[in-house]
Design a protein around this nucleic acid. Structure first.
Length: 474
RNA sequence: GCCGCCAUCGUCUAGAGGUCUAGGACGUCAGGUUCUCAACCUGAAAAUCGCGGGUUCGAAUCCCGCUGGCGGUACCA
């Protein structure tokens, strides 16, 4: 059996979009499931919109997610180069062949001519397509047009057939190609269009399965025509749905974070991102859910390896999922909680000022762990230990806090257990409200109403610091 | 305009003609635990399966139509 080869071909016109990451992931899962190869190809054929910094971001983001490719612009491979901008010669070789074989022809029509033709067809309520008149040009006609200074585009000569193909996700689809006529495959400046370039790349790179976004679904018949004309068998196709925002429009900038980088910066763990993305359009097998229930872990938590083992492209849904940040955050919290203190420390290290003691931070991390949804939440819990903002307490709160000061001064063993028992004693003796009293103390020491467990906080902060803060209270 | 794809709780989904008075997860709400906030535990509300027709003894599941959403139709990708 031939080796499975899949690819992702992002265009570097922006940072890696989560939708592209989703597609990349499914390509990767599929390839790895069959012990095949996954290829990264940079689609920078539109140079005006492509930027190197975006290519770098795409590569870094995919790496961060843990998606490894076997061939790509950065690591090379047997079918290099892997940037479309560097493959122009190859495209021209194929273009020449199409022209030579009579499967393509030069079209000298101007955009205006084309537009009016199209308008007329729309008025008649029939499918808009090129008349094909340039395919009938004589040598003399052609010469005349060239003399006029016209530069031709290249059109593919559509054999007008009914094309039936099986999409691995969507099933059998039949399209009458006569509906779209002869389409352009190369611009008048000589550059090739995506349809042709992608087809050639897939041929050259021996892609066996083209798994991509649904925007390509309608383009499949054209590409099949191209494959046939070039004498190659098309790959298997599978079209994933786009990811949508809660307002049911395509996920875009105005909805907030759309790039993988933004989620990384937000403090989302790559493994949570992958796990979440995997649940969009693909349901976690019941056996894994059952096993997780037995183990007492969240049902939908699956490892990379488990996804690869169980991934079936036929199980992927074709309906449009909405990207739900809330669920992502929940899942991220689950992953954060599964980290050891040391692991969590490493992940938040970059958020911690250099002069902060590691031992203390580790203790704080341990306490903050099940309160965090993102890594960035850590700063919120760390903050009270770094700065003290003087807070104004209400009179009664002030009074409550003052009851602790003399006792605290005399404590020899300053630790959470000791502090808790002493404080509870004070509350008991004074017949005070636990809730109000401890809140007053918390406010006095941390300046925050919300925070880590009080006595642990006092312990970590240290006697000297706590006393000084209590004295500063207004 | 023409063509294609899609349609189950607010969201992700289970569901391949009877086991569905539709199951789970996130979110929401209520209660428990509790020094706050979380975490954790218990429970609840939440889909007349987009609508209308068929087929069938029986349909979320099959067929047709409609509606809505999305996409393609470009010398965009």
């Amino acid at each position: 059996m031939q080796t499975v080869r899949t690819r992702i071909a992002p265009s570097p016109s922006g940072n890696l979009h989560v939708g592209t990451a989703h597609t990349a992931l499914f390509n990767f899962f599929f390839a790895r499931h069959f012990k095949g190869k996954f290829i990264l190809r940079i689609d920078d054929s539109d140079q005006s919109r492509s930027q190197k910094k975006y290519e770098i971001n795409i590569i870094e983001s995919l790496r961060w997610l843990g998606i490894q490719w076997d061939e790509g612009p950065d690591i090379g491979g047997p079918y290099s180069p892997y940037r479309q901008s560097e493959r122009k010669n190859t495209y021209h070789t194929y273009l020449e062949k199409l022209l030579y074989d009579g499967n393509a022809y030069y079209c000298y029509c101007t955009p205006d001519e084309l537009n009016s033709e199209r308008k007329l067809q729309e008025q008649q309520k029939i499918a808009t397509k090129y008349s094909g008149k340039c395919s009938l040009l004589t040598k003399a006609d052609t010469q005349e047009l060239i003399d006029q200074g016209r530069k031709p585009a290249v059109r593919f000569k559509n054999p007008c057939a009914r094309i039936t193909f099986t999409d691995l996700i969507r099933g059998t689809i039949t399209v009458d190609t006569s509906l779209f006529g002869d389409f352009i495959i190369a611009r008048s400046d000589g550059t090739t269009l995506l349809n042709l370039a992608a087809t050639i790349d897939d041929i050259e790179m021996k892609i066996t399965h083209a798994i991509r976004g649904e925007d390509f679904l309608n383009l499949v018949p054209r590409q099949i025509l191209l494959f046939n004309a070039l004498g190659y068998i098309p790959p298997q196709f599978a079209h994933l749905s786009f990811l949508y925002a809660p307002d049911k429009t395509k996920l875009s900038k105005r909805h907030g974070a759309t790039s993988v980088t933004e989620y990384k910066d937000m403090g989302i763990l790559p493994e949570a991102m992958i796990n979440y993305l995997a649940t969009l359009g693909w349901a976690i097998p019941p056996a894994i859910i059952e096993r997780n229930k037995l183990k007492g872990v969240a049902e939908e938590i699956v490892s990379f390896q488990e996804i690869i083992e169980n991934f079936q492209i036929e199980d992927v849904k074709s309906s449009a999922p909405i990207f739900d940040i809330e669920k992502l955050k929940w899942m991220n919290g689950v992953y954060i909680r599964s980290l050891s203190d040391e692991q969590l420390f490493k992940r938040v290290e970059n958020l911690i000022p250099q002069d902060v003691d590691k031992k203390r931070t580790l203790r704080i991390a341990a306490l903050a762990k099940n309160r965090m949804k993102t890594l960035n939440d850590f700063t919120m819990y760390l903050k009270p230990f770094l700065h003290y903002v003087t807070v104004k307490l209400e009179n009664n709160q002030h009074e409550l806090v003052s009851k602790f000061l003399p006792q605290f001064n005399t404590i020899k063993n300053w630790n959470a257990v000791e502090l808790e028992s002493i404080c509870k004693q004070i509350v008991n003796d004074g017949q005070l409200s636990i809730r109000d009293t401890f809140m007053a103390l918390r406010l006095a020491v941390t300046g925050e109403k919300i925070g880590l467990p009080l006595f642990e906080t006092l312990d970590i902060m240290g006697k000297k610091e706590v006393l000084s803060r209590m004295e500063k209270v207004e």
